[in-house]
């Protein structure tokens, strides 16, 4: 079909329009285990070739069992997280409990779709523990399409990390040893290694990724620390040890 140039544009001079969006780089990632979830993001914020800051968090604690990672346009991301947190607080006031993970996921869809025609330019990954005690990851597009998955990478280095995850988590293009089958879930130490490797590799090959790594680990109720011991620099964020437990691990990434 031949495109007809808009006649108005021929008659009138074109006006440059204000662009309300920008891209602030960085990458986020989440992997669900059988009874835990790891949600991670780098801490670099950039615009074009400039690094704005080496520490701007993209991963946020919502409740003791839900963590949200936000990537894309930082101003939209921060505002969106603020609004989600506010809705969760209202929920607590109304129901005297934290909102379940699947409900938070649906809430996020509703909130994103409400801005269908002026979207929050952000990719969200929600991770945590479901009411049945399983680890879960929900991923969203900017206008609210979402699904539950085992793992997801998003952001600047999505195209570098996701294929690696497909191979390492879903065992894509790997043949199981004869008489054996691939495991459906990996143990926590393996997952943490994969996350760290993902980010060090993305830092090597993508200019917008680096500076620092924040990994949030959510453990299901009653599950031991199994696999956390070996990791250094762990900080616990949950106040109670009897319910779900939440930890954050901070690591350095290359700053060049």
């Amino acid at each position: 079909m031949v495109a007809v140039p808009d006649m108005d544009s021929l008659v009138n001079p074109q006006q440059r329009q204000f662009n309300p969006y920008t891209e602030n780089g960085g990458t986020i990632l989440a992997i669900a285990g059988a009874d835990f979830t790891v949600i991670a993001g780098d801490t670099r914020q950039s615009e074009g070739y400039s690094i704005q800051t080496r520490y701007a968090p993209k991963v946020f604690r919502l409740t003791d069992k839900a963590v949200l990672a936000v990537n894309g346009f930082a101003a939209d991301g921060n505002m969106f997280v603020k609004k989600v947190k506010q809705r969760l607080e209202w929920y607590r006031h109304a129901h005297a409990k934290d909102m379940p993970l699947r409900a938070i996921a649906r809430l996020i869809q509703t909130m994103l779709y409400a801005r269908r025609f002026f979207p929050f330019y952000v990719y969200n990954i929600l991770g945590g523990i479901e009411d049945d005690g399983t680890g879960a990851v929900y991923s969203f597009d900017p206008v609210g399409s979402y699904e539950r998955e085992t793992c997801r990478a998003a952001g600047a280095a999505q195209s570098l990390v996701q294929p690696f995850l497909d191979n390492q988590i879903y065992f894509k293009n790997q043949l199981a040893a004869p008489g054996m089958s691939h495991p459906t879930h990996l143990p926590l130490p393996d997952v943490l290694s994969i996350v760290i490797d993902s980010f060090t590799s993305a830092t090597e090959r993508h200019i917008e990724v680096g500076d620092g790594l924040e990994m949030y680990v959510v453990l299901a109720k009653g599950r031991g620390l199994g696999g956390m011991e070996a990791i250094g620099g762990v900080q616990e964020l949950s106040e109670r040890t009897e319910g779900e437990r939440l930890f954050v691990v901070r690591r350095e990434l290359k700053k060049d």
Binding site: P20, T22, Q45, T53, R54, A75, N78
Partner: peptide, 11 residues
């Protein structure tokens, strides 16, 4: 920092 897009950060 804050700018016309509402972008913020600290360093």
């Amino acid at each position: 920092y804050v700018d016309l897009l509402g972008t913020t950060y600290s360093a």
